[in-house]
């Protein structure tokens, strides 16, 4: 049960990070087009800039993670530490996948 909840959290984090990057970049590009700015350039730029914010948004703030790290290191609860690292990795993967999708949409080919 605990493991299932962890997997759900992992997937949720991945999807949130992916959605933040994809949605932010696409909607930003739409806004750029409405304001007569270059849409593809803006989209690529936003995808790059939003990667780190997608990570933060998916993790739901940094304090809880830092506290878990503290508890993991000082309290020697290494299982929690690994879990948090996996969640961060999942968020990073989601954000990076969004970035890659945007890159493929905006590339010249």
């Amino acid at each position: 049960m605990d493991r299932e909840r962890f997997l759900v959290t992992l997937l949720l984090t991945f999807c949130v990070a992916l959605g933040v990057n994809l949605g932010g970049s696409l909607m930003g590009s739409l806004g750029a087009a409405l304001m007569h700015r270059p849409p593809l350039k803006t989209m690529l730029q936003l995808a790059d800039e939003l990667k780190i914010w997608a990570l933060v948004a998916a993790l739901g703030g940094t304090f809880a993670v830092i506290r878990t790290f503290e508890a993991g290191v000082l309290g020697r609860q290494f299982a929690d530490l690994v879990r948090q690292l996996l969640i961060i990795g999942s968020a990073f993967l989601g954000a990076h996948l969004g970035y890659l999708i945007i890159i493929s949409l905006g590339s010249n080919r």
Binding site: L26, S29, A33, P38, P39, L40, G106
Partner: peptide, 9 residues
């Protein structure tokens, strides 16, 4: 928008 983004660019 995605269909016409390249042309707009």
């Amino acid at each position: 928008h995605l269909c016409h983004a390249r042309r707009m660019e």
